[in-house]
Amino acid sequence: MQLIAKLVEEEEKNCKVDEQQLNDCYIQAQHWAHRGVMLFDAIASTVQLCQNKLFPEYQKVKDELPVPVQEKLQKRHQGIEIIGRMLERIVEPARELYETETPNRELPRVSKPELIDILSNETNPESARQAIAKKFKEIGDRRYKCIAEIRELAERRQQRWLNFVEKKVLPIVDGIESGQRYSQPLVAQLKNENPNWSTKLDDWFKIYHNLHLNLLHALEQMEVYPMQVKTKTPIDYTHHEPFDVQDDESLPNEYIKEVIRQGYEYLSQKSKVKSQKSKEFLVLRTAQVVVVKN
């Protein structure tokens, strides 16, 4: 009975360690399930706002412009329509990330009656030792499998979330920023050519600002934020990706001359802990920059 009590005590210690691992994985799986819900809600509400308000308002302004002006803006119209379709197409894929349930596993353990039963059926001490070792290994393997399943679920949810934001949401934001950048000189030219339509052209151009603002708000709801990348500062290779190198005698080597593509970061799971004094952000996508090489 002393041997059984000792084995039960050891099993209890091992089980507590495994239960802590399981609980950590379970919390992580729940965390990414919650972020999946946040992502879908943010995407769905943003797309609804665009369909019900922003695009109808834009269409109204567009139709009020003179036909010759509309024709000169045709490629920009097509770009905005593409952005609208891209937004519509991510709603259903985002719905797949909407998971509210995480299976709760109860770890198996070797009970005192099971040990008594094993020992009572074995008269040879070595056979009894082997039978007990076999039982502990069997239970240990089952516990490991339970923990591994929840850990894999958490990792799968995390990777799907990160991939979705990086591959499906950020390209839309990039498209809006690119459209705004390329449209600005054309709108300025059209305002000079058609001063009577200057206000309407400004109203038309606001579609980029409004779309960009709403997408950034959606990202903020997902706890994703643009990096604060400053030019004329040293490059940080953990956050910045060299897109090109250029000479510039006014700046030292390895300094950022220009930001080509915005980088993004997301709030870490650790920052959810109330005792955490400062927020921690992890890189979602590095910023592409032009680096000085003299």
Rank of each mutant, 00 (worst) to 15 (best):
N253S: 03
Y144D: 15
P195R: 07
P113G: 06
W161H: 09
P234D: 03
L65C: 06
I80M: 14
L3K: 04
S178W: 13
V91N: 07
Q2R: 11
I43V: 14
D202C: 12
Y26F: 15
I147N: 02
E12N: 11
H77W: 15
G140W: 09
K257G: 05
Q228T: 13
E155R: 10
F55M: 14
I176F: 09
Q262G: 04
L215E: 12
K272D: 02
C146N: 15
R105P: 01
K279C: 05
R261T: 07
R76S: 15
A148C: 06
A154W: 02
T238W: 07
R285N: 07
E241R: 10
V291A: 03
Y58A: 05
P93K: 06
I118F: 07
R157E: 03
K112G: 01
V289Q: 02
A218K: 00
V61C: 12
P66Y: 10
Y98D: 00
E177P: 02
E126F: 12
Q51K: 07
D202H: 07
Q288D: 11
K60M: 11
S271C: 02
Q59T: 14
Q20S: 10
T100R: 10
Y98E: 04
P171K: 11
L282K: 05
S250L: 01
I139V: 15
E9P: 07
N196W: 02
S111D: 03
N294A: 01
E220T: 14
P93C: 04
D248V: 04
C15R: 11
K53M: 08
G36M: 03
K191S: 09
K75S: 12
N104E: 11
H31A: 12
E254L: 01
V110Y: 00
P185R: 06
K191N: 12
E11R: 06
P108S: 02
T46Q: 08
I80S: 08
R181L: 13
K62G: 04
E155H: 03
W204P: 03
